[in-house]
Simulated scan of single mutants.
Amino acid sequence: MSLKAGDVIEFERRFTKADVELFTKSSRDEGAHHLTPDEKGRLVVQGLLTATLPTKIGGDYNVLARHMNFEFLRPVFTEDTIRCEVTIEENERQETKNRTSIVASFICTNQKQKHVLKGNFSGVILDS
């Protein structure tokens, strides 16, 4: 399936304590707020773990990222379910380079309908 300008892709993910623990090991982002539960027993999800939501498009559509811009708006906690909406803003086929360039924007919203992350990215999709 190819991407076209105007396409909107939506998906969601629920972050767990195991997700944060695994990301802590691989990233070494060991801030106390990622290791010590709050009064409700939740951990704060690393910003870059939250930022993996829009990067899912890269895996699904074989996009090689060129540029990524993230604005972290509020914290995400374990057991939060985050919905990510990605909008393809531009899609330009480059015949001479055998690739398609894309530009996309995204907004991520928690289960309380609060925006937690927004930004944009650009990249290329190489011909197979």
Rank of each mutant, 00 (worst) to 15 (best):
L43N: 12
T50G: 12
K40R: 13
I57C: 06
D60K: 06
V45R: 04
G31N: 14
K56N: 11
K56C: 06
T55F: 07
L35P: 03
I57W: 06
L43A: 13
A51H: 02
T50A: 12
G31R: 12
L43C: 12
T55Q: 13
G59M: 07
A32M: 12
E30D: 06
G59A: 12
L43R: 03
A51Y: 03
T50P: 02
P37T: 06
G58T: 15
A51M: 02
L49N: 03
H33Y: 05
R42W: 03
G41H: 03
H34F: 08
H33E: 09
L53M: 15
G41K: 01
R42K: 15
E30T: 10
Q46H: 15
Q46Y: 09
D38A: 07
T52N: 14
A32Q: 06
G47D: 11
L43V: 12
H33S: 03
T52L: 04
L48I: 09
L49E: 01
L49D: 01
H34N: 09
G59D: 06
V44S: 01
L48Y: 14
E39I: 13
G58V: 10
D60Y: 02
G31A: 15
L35R: 14
A32E: 15
E30A: 08
D38H: 12
P54Q: 13
A32D: 15
D29F: 11
G41C: 05
